[in-house]
């Protein structure tokens, strides 16, 4: 075992000991999940059409219910979701450990994430795109009898959707040993279509609207009809900014002489633009981290209690003793 591996093992053991210690102090309040059983009675006469849904609940509600009736079955401790909270917490720590350096725990989390997420989006793509937008259009009766009984009875067969099906099959042809070139046709179709679409929509939406919004008088008057210096200055800066940035983007001229100076001004404008966007984002990013730490220290370990829900659970428990 080399030095770095030894360090990791030690860190891991320290972490495990700390968590175990935390559990010994108040075992009942650490990372447990509770559910509320909601019976679903879809069909009175058929027993097969009755089942129970388990919605997220809280320890407070569970304690209160037990206090009222020790044999109640409405609020339950959920073993699977408790395991879930623990797994989520461990994975969170595994990922954050990457900030120190790459390590087997991060690799483990990364491998799981790739597998789970790739499959997740495939499942979403199948159930929310292929089924309603391909099968549902080409064979609405079949889809209604199978997975989407709520599909409108008026839904007609839309033969136009054969196009994406055929394009899709051509695309998959690349897997066959011969004639893989045919898969270039759907690619060419898609690229052609979207080039045309983006060309015209960008000119319409971005190009024209940006010019339109850029047209403003440099001589502003306020509501009383007198000259408004600050508003006017604002518009002067705006137009100088836009024009100098445009000069920066010119490809035909080297950035020398007057063009160079104007382009330099353009760069400064853009740097201020970028700085503004940078500053604007920082708080949001820190908030994201705060949410993760809150999950670890509140939902999982209860070392902090910002919303007071743990304290509430403790109070609700007092009656049980």
């Amino acid at each position: 075992m080399n030095k770095s591996n030894r360090l990791w093992v030690i860190l891991f053991i320290i972490g495990a000991v700390l968590v175990a210690g935390r559990m010994l102090i108040s075992q009942s309040l650490i990372g447990k999940a509770y559910v509320q059983a909601v019976p679903v009675n879809a069909d009175e006469e058929n027993e097969d059409h009755k089942w129970t849904l388990y919605e997220q609940s809280s320890q407070t509600k569970f304690n209160e219910a037990v206090l009222e009736d020790p044999n109640q079955t409405k609020y339950l401790f959920s073993f699977s979701r408790t395991i879930g909270v623990w797994i989520a917490a461990l994975l969170t720590i595994f990922v954050l450990s990457f900030l120190i350096r790459d390590n087997p725990l991060y690799k483990f989390a990364e491998s799981i994430f790739i597998g789970i997420s790739a499959a997740y989006w495939m499942v979403v793509g199948f159930w929310s795109t292929v089924v309603p937008n391909l099968f549902g259009k080409l064979s609405p009766d079949m889809v209604r009898d199978w997975a989407m009984p709520g599909l409108g009875i008026d839904e007609r067969v839309e033969l136009m959707y054969i196009v994406p099906l055929v394009l899709g099959l051509m695309l998959l042809w690349i897997l066959s040993p011969k004639g893989g070139w045919i898969s270039r046709w759907p690619t060419a179709f898609i690229i052609g279509v979207f080039c045309g679409l983006r060309l015209i929509t960008f000119i319409h939406a971005d190009f024209l609207s940006q010019i339109r919004n850029g047209i403003a008088p440099l001589w502003m008057v306020d509501s009383s009809g007198s000259f408004d210096f600050w508003e006017s200055l604002r518009n002067v800066f705006l137009i100088i900014g836009v024009l100098s940035c445009l000069v920066y983007f010119f490809f035909s001229f080297e950035h020398k002489g007057i063009i160079g100076k104007t382009a330099k001004l353009g760069i400064w404008f853009m740097m201020i633009t970028f700085g503004a966007a940078f500053g604007y984002t920082v708080m949001g990013r820190i908030a994201l981290l705060a949410i993760r730490l809150e999950f670890l220290f509140d939902d999982w370990l209860w070392l902090i209690d910002p919303t007071g829900k743990r304290l509430e659970a403790v109070i609700s428990m007092l009656g049980l003793f």
């Binding site: 994430f113 790739i114 789970i116 997420s117 790739a118 997740y120 989006w121 495939m122």
Partner: peptide, 8 residues
């Protein structure tokens, strides 16, 4: 191909 998920 890796995964469609941005953060994955």
């Amino acid at each position: 191909y890796v995964t469609d998920e941005q953060f994955g």
